[in-house]
Amino acid sequence: MYEVRFHGRGGQGAVMAAQALASAAFKEGYYAVAFPYFGAERRGAPVLAFTRMDKQKIRRKNQVYNPSFVVILDDRLIDLVNVSEGLNPSGAAVVNTRKSPEEIDLGMEIKVGVVDATSVALEVLGVPITNSAILGAFAKTTGVVSIEAVEEGIRDIFGGRIGKEAGEKNAKAARVAYDRTVVGTSRGEKKMVSKKQWLPTVQELPLGLATRSMETDAGLVGPGSFVENKTGSWRTFKPVFNRDKCVMCLLCWFYCPEGAIKRVDGGKTLEFDFDYCKGCGICAEECPTKAIEMVRD
């Protein structure tokens, strides 16, 4: 049985990619299952999706812990999430990146297929949505499914969801990505760390979960503890602040949904907190003196 774990961000269509791969595998004679990580993540937040493929009926309903392959829709996720956790060393990784295989460090030396799926998507679809293109790279890297089956799977899932024409275009994106995919071996120098989680015992857990602010081995929990969650990693665009143009009207400070803009120097100027800025662009849009500009992060 092959198990595939997709690493994407909310809104990038990782679940649709997993489903299209299942459909492709089905066309190749596999029994295939695709499912999301059942969470409630919002746009931009790291998310997971899974595909299982086997020659016989797949009865296993638990989550995937030791994937044969991981598919990474955004190479910046490598620094955020332990993308190679549990990855079978005889498997492979597929990464959307501008880097070469040798420049990718997954904390283990493993077969890796790379493609600049974002550029492919922009060229073919006109939008930077990479969930179809990346499947072409998957076919090229793993050989588990043919590119023809991937195209069919995309026509099936994407076509059914967003229209026949869009399905066709996405199939084309996969084909272009297939042709451009370079397969090599990743570096294994980085120490991959999984995010620590607070897992108290029954005895440690506050009664009825009525929780005060407290420090745990995984950081702060309780009131005001969301600061532990650095949402800056969600960003694709980043505000660049030109202090000279700023008139301190404070509209950006007021409008920031994250509170990622701070008054500093006794209220004389502003500072952007990139730990949390999600790059929504409201600040730049609303700045009356155009002192903020959004650039690709």
Partner: peptide, 17 residues
């Protein structure tokens, strides 16, 4: 506080803040 997981540009988050 920051770190909440609202979508980028969320109107609710900025109003509540």
């Amino acid at each position: 506080t920051a770190g909440h997981t609202a979508c980028p540009g969320c109107g609710v988050a900025l109003v509540v803040r």
